[in-house]
Amino acid sequence: MGTIKQGILGGFSGKVGTVVGGTWKGIHYMRSLPTSVRNPRTEAQVMQRTKFMVTIDFLKPITPFIRVGFKNYASRQTAFNAAMSYNVKNAVTGVFPDYEMDYSNILVSRGSLLPAENADAVAAERSLNFTWSDNSGVSNATETDQAMALVYNGTKGESVFSTTTGGRSSGSATLNVPENWIGDTVEVYLGFISENGSLVANSVYLGQKTIV
């Protein structure tokens, strides 16, 4: 409750309705109360937060890779947040609350460098053998571009990756995986980064593979 100090035309202190009165250096003032915050758990907000959590669960095990893969989008935000923004919009599927990641639409690297061409991966003994066509000299691709290979194990919430797997001109690379992954189904991606690190290519999804 507010208190009037100098009659009905004087200043007051305290709260009266939606107004707060007070005195500062002998000057009487009034200010309105802040508008109440909207319900932070509206249906739309809960749906969006659920999409965020699904995306975070995928990105967290590959955070170091994301820092390289989305580095060119980190000028006004972190690379992780840039990856979050892209993948929430483009790679979350399903109907609330049963959202899940559409692995084929995920990008784990993004940029203007020419991506991998005719890329594939074949499971071998506790490893994945990557192959691609050497398209050096086409557009901005060079033979010294480094392959960025990533293997994501959704069952275990783990990943194995390398941002310097092999040169574009080599056409192949191998990535070893843990022994306890044998029998697990994994998601496989391949990107490229220029030798000086200034350019990154959009990653290419190579499908699901079963570790042998």
Results as ranks from 00 to 15, higher is better:
residue 2 G to R: 11
residue 2 G to Y: 08
residue 3 T to Q: 14
residue 5 K to Y: 07
residue 6 Q to M: 11
residue 6 Q to W: 12
residue 6 Q to R: 13
residue 7 G to F: 10
residue 8 I to A: 13
residue 9 L to W: 12
residue 10 G to F: 05
residue 11 G to S: 14
residue 12 F to Q: 08
residue 14 G to Y: 12
residue 14 G to A: 04
residue 17 G to N: 08
residue 18 T to A: 14
residue 19 V to D: 05
residue 19 V to W: 03
residue 20 V to Y: 06
residue 21 G to L: 11
residue 21 G to C: 09
residue 22 G to D: 01
residue 22 G to M: 10
residue 25 K to T: 08
residue 25 K to G: 02
residue 26 G to V: 03
residue 26 G to F: 08
residue 30 M to D: 01
residue 31 R to A: 09
residue 32 S to C: 07
residue 34 P to H: 04
residue 35 T to N: 01
residue 36 S to H: 01
residue 38 R to G: 15
residue 40 P to N: 07
residue 41 R to C: 05
residue 43 E to C: 03
residue 43 E to A: 15
residue 45 Q to L: 13
residue 45 Q to S: 10
residue 45 Q to G: 15
residue 46 V to D: 01
residue 48 Q to I: 11
residue 48 Q to V: 03
residue 52 F to N: 08
residue 53 M to R: 14
residue 53 M to T: 14
residue 55 T to I: 07
residue 55 T to V: 12
residue 55 T to C: 14
residue 56 I to W: 10
residue 58 F to P: 00
residue 59 L to W: 11
residue 59 L to H: 05
residue 62 I to P: 00
residue 65 F to A: 02
residue 66 I to L: 05
residue 66 I to G: 10
residue 69 G to Q: 09
residue 69 G to S: 04
residue 70 F to D: 12
residue 74 A to F: 02
residue 75 S to F: 06
residue 76 R to A: 15
residue 78 T to P: 01
residue 80 F to W: 05
residue 80 F to N: 07
residue 82 A to M: 06
residue 82 A to V: 01
residue 82 A to S: 13
residue 83 A to Y: 06
residue 83 A to N: 07
residue 88 V to I: 15
residue 89 K to S: 14
residue 89 K to T: 14
residue 89 K to Q: 13
residue 90 N to Y: 13
residue 95 V to T: 15
residue 97 P to S: 10
residue 99 Y to P: 04
residue 100 E to W: 07
residue 101 M to P: 00
residue 103 Y to P: 01
residue 104 S to Y: 11
residue 105 N to D: 14
residue 106 I to E: 00
residue 106 I to N: 09
residue 108 V to N: 08
residue 108 V to M: 07
residue 109 S to D: 08
residue 118 N to W: 00
residue 118 N to R: 05
residue 119 A to M: 01
residue 119 A to C: 11
residue 121 A to E: 03
residue 123 A to G: 07
residue 123 A to E: 13
residue 124 A to L: 08
residue 125 E to Y: 06
residue 126 R to C: 05
residue 126 R to D: 11
residue 127 S to Q: 15
residue 127 S to I: 00
residue 128 L to N: 05
residue 129 N to S: 10
residue 131 T to I: 03
residue 131 T to S: 15
residue 132 W to Q: 07
residue 136 S to H: 09
residue 136 S to P: 01
residue 137 G to Q: 02
residue 138 V to G: 04
residue 138 V to A: 12
residue 139 S to D: 15
residue 139 S to V: 14
residue 140 N to T: 10
residue 141 A to M: 03
residue 141 A to P: 03
residue 142 T to K: 02
residue 145 D to W: 04
residue 146 Q to E: 13
residue 147 A to Q: 05
residue 153 N to C: 03
residue 154 G to Y: 02
residue 154 G to K: 08
residue 154 G to E: 12
residue 156 K to Q: 12
residue 157 G to H: 04
residue 159 S to H: 02
residue 162 S to L: 03
residue 162 S to V: 09
residue 162 S to P: 09
residue 165 T to H: 09
residue 168 R to F: 04
residue 170 S to T: 15
residue 171 G to Y: 08
residue 175 L to Q: 03
residue 175 L to K: 00
residue 183 G to A: 06
residue 184 D to Y: 01
residue 188 V to Y: 01
residue 189 Y to W: 09
residue 197 G to N: 03
residue 198 S to P: 02
residue 199 L to Q: 10
residue 199 L to K: 09
residue 199 L to R: 09
residue 205 Y to V: 02
residue 207 G to R: 02
residue 209 K to D: 02
residue 209 K to H: 12
residue 209 K to L: 15
residue 210 T to M: 00
residue 211 I to P: 00
